[in-house]
Amino acid sequence: MRVEPGPPALEPFRALMSRTVVLPHANIDTDQIIPARFLTTLARTGLGPLAFHDWRYHPGGAPKDDFVLNTITAADHRILVAGDNFGCGSSREHAPWALTDFGFRAVISTKVADIFTSNALKNGLLPIEVDAATHARLIAAPGADVVVDLEAREVRFDGRTTAFEVEPFGRRCLLDGVDPLGFILSRLPVIEAFEKARAA
């Protein structure tokens, strides 16, 4: 199927050069990315200040000076390098909403949870799984300049190039900055025929 050019809902994602933020812990779950008590929102925007809330602020609300997200400028730190198995837990799309609103456009780990990956790709956030050796080098180099090239499907860092895989349809949507809903809507005649055949 051709991806038809529709109005981009998101900023198209082709390649990104940025510095990294490293959160080395394994199994960073969506409750850490945005705690459940903040899910009573009706919006999908404005959640950046709540990203990693309970790691980022003291119980009284004051920012923790030594927590990395409080020590960097988001505009030039758009790549999050996280420990193994990132984004596990709940299906809340608020997790990628919070990360993108903070300023992230890519997350690199050895493994990214299924539902998080699906949600991220629909929100202009590229989840990338790399091998353990590349991951270890990235973890050891917070603030490194990294190139994430979605067209070439490559991470380039420290003179080395690492290929990554990304689901082709999700990649196409990200490259063009479009949401998949338009494509599913274009299949409505086929969906109707399917339902008719099943009801028969």
Binding site: S91, K122, D179, R187, L188, I191, E195
Partner: peptide, 20 residues
């Protein structure tokens, strides 16, 4: 299986989902 909110929208609008 669980889905995100964008996919909730897809199902509401079309009763279908893209899935590998």
């Amino acid at each position: 299986f669980g889905i995100g909110t964008s996919e909730v929208g897809h199902v509401l609008a079309t009763q279908c989902l893209f899935q590998r």
